[in-house]
Simulated assay, not measured.
Amino acid sequence: MEHYGLQTAAGHLTVAAESKEPYADDVLAQLHDDAEQVVARYPQKRSALLPLLHLVQSVDGYVTGRGIDFCAEVLDLTTAEVSGVATFYTQYKRHPNGEFTVGVCTNTLCAIMGGDQIWDEVSEHLGIGHDETTADGKITLERVECNAACDYAPVVMANWEFFDNQTPDSTKQLVDDLRAGKDVAPTRGAAKVCSFKQVSRVLAGFHDGLADEGVGAGPSSLRGLELAKDRNWTAPNGKHAAKADGDAGTAGLAPGRSSSTDTPSNDADEQAGSKPAEGK
Rank of each mutant, 00 (worst) to 15 (best):
A244S: 07
G246A: 01
I68C: 00
S260Y: 01
A149N: 07
E142W: 09
G181A: 10
A190R: 14
W160R: 13
V102G: 08
A153W: 15
V122Q: 03
A217N: 04
T133H: 05
K45R: 06
L31E: 06
G249E: 15
K275G: 09
D169C: 01
L52N: 06
G205S: 03
P51G: 07
H125T: 03
P219Q: 03
A204W: 07
L109Q: 06
G246Y: 04
Y23I: 12
G67N: 04
F100N: 10
A242F: 12
L203D: 03
K275Y: 05
I139Q: 01
S123F: 05
N107C: 11
P168L: 01
V175E: 09
D69G: 11
G252W: 07
P186W: 06
L31G: 06
A277T: 14
A251W: 12
E81P: 00
G273T: 05
S58A: 03
D176R: 04
G181N: 08
H207Y: 05
L126T: 06
K93W: 06
G256N: 10
G65K: 02
A24H: 13
L49H: 00
P255G: 07
V39D: 00
A86F: 00
A190D: 12
L53E: 02
Q30P: 02
T108F: 05
D269L: 11
R188Y: 00
A135P: 11
P96V: 14
N97T: 13
